[in-house]
Design a protein around this nucleic acid. Structure first.
Length: 370
DNA sequence: AAAACGTGGCC
DNA sequence: TGGCCAAGTTT
């Protein structure tokens, strides 16, 4: 039996589609802080695995725009995995504050310590080994292996799911269709430049094959795209229906000292919502539908006054937090510490807490002006 | 396997 | 306004 003649696009791989993708990437790659420019030769040195790993963790379910500033801050403060491993976990979670999904920060730190202590400061180079490290799953292990180590690992993220389900009109709903998508990516994989191929596919998804109004006329995969031919691009990917978000209520208690210069903070337990993060004392809003509200839910007695409410949307519920404030004369006999208002930025407050505290401070300042 | 897990931007 | 979406992982 005769073999089909192999695509003769040279280093561009076994699939014409992959060749088109790489050629597109050579002139249209996004310029991102953690990225090396496209390498048409496939011979350039690979990027620093530490920076690739850090960027990939930050980018999980998070936009490029949100990540950029954090990536800069982290790499300036901790230029190597050893430096990050030497930091306290609380420093790392504080620096992560505002980026969300805080288990990532704890896993990031744990992973840095494993790489520093168990791997001599060098990341393992295969997707299979990388996947054993905390915070690194299917996507991230493949991405690091491909981008930082040149392994032809099939990378599948949300962008690539969209591109590939359209390309092949895959009608199975996600996430069940993920193995099909991964198999298609593996089939498309070029013989060279696996890292550039992965990044190119993600860039196509992020800039051309977008959820609404995809710019198919600009797409290097247009000639191959079944959905474009059928004209039903936006019908893909098919996703399982989402559940309704419940509404929850809770309360936060902002205690100021007599000087008005300090607020009482404490650290949340490491599991669950905002795990390990700093908060103004609050009720059990994270674990019940009607978190105890009112002045009686406070961790210590004071002349609590309700000063307002803040709204905050989480992934799986919407929260209304009643905010109470009081001035107290004694340091509470409960876990926590006085934080200087001018230095709240260094405390690493998650956004929900930032909202509650901003409201409390505004109220406090309005009282002093009277 | 389904649910938990943040945040901000867009239309 | 509210739902959708963004380089997912863990349990």
């Amino acid at each position: 039996m005769r073999r089909r003649v192999r695509d003769t696009a040279g280093a561009q791989g076994r699939s014409g589609a992959a060749a088109a993708v790489l050629a597109w990437y050579d002139t249209h790659a996004r310029d991102l802080p953690w990225r090396r420019p496209p390498d048409p030769t496939g011979q350039a040195p690979l990027p620093d695995p530490y920076r690739i790993w850090l960027s990939e963790i930050m980018l999980q379910q998070t936009t490029v725009a949100a990540v950029a500033a954090y990536f800069k801050a982290f790499t300036e403060r901790w230029p190597t995995v050893e430096a990050l491993a030497a930091a306290d976990e609380t420093e790392v979670t504080a620096a992560w504050a505002g980026l969300g999904y805080y288990s990532r920060a704890r896993n990031l730190h744990a992973c840095a310590r494993m790489v520093a202590n168990d791997y001599g400061g060098r990341f393992p180079e295969s997707a299979a080994e990388l996947k054993r490290l905390p915070g690194i799953g299917d996507y991230t292990s493949a991405a690091i292996a491909a981008i930082a180590f040149g392994e032809p690992a099939p990378v599948v993220d949300g962008n690539i799911e969209r591109v590939v389900t359209r390309l092949f009109r895959i009608g199975e709903p996600l996430p069940g269709a993920k193995p099909i998508v991964r198999a298609k990516v593996a089939e498309m994989m070029p013989g060279e430049r696996p890292g550039d191929f992965a990044q190119a596919m993600m860039d196509i998804g992020a800039t051309i094959c977008v959820p609404r109004r995809p710019a198919c006329l600009l797409c290097p995969l247009r000639p191959d795209c079944e959905a474009e031919t059928a004209g039903d691009q936006t019908a893909y990917p098919v996703k399982a229906a989402k559940k309704a978000k419940p509404k929850r209520r809770g309360a936060a208690y902002a205690a100021f000292d007599r000087s008005g210069q300090h607020i009482w903070l404490r650290r949340r337990v490491s599991k669950g919502m905002l795990g390990g993060m700093v908060e103004v004392p609050s009720s059990q809003w994270s674990s019940r539908s009607d978190g105890a509200t009112g002045p009686n839910g406070a961790p210590f007695a004071a002349n609590w006054r309700k000063i307002g409410e803040v709204e905050h949307g989480f992934t799986h519920f919407d929260l209304t937090l009643e905010v109470f404030a009081a001035v107290i004369d004694e340091t509470p006999e409960s876990d926590g510490w006085w934080a200087k208002l001018e230095r709240l930025g260094a405390e690493g407050l998650p956004t929900l807490m930032r909202k509650a505290i901003d409201l409390a401070i505004a109220f406090q300042e309005s009282q002093y002006r009277l």
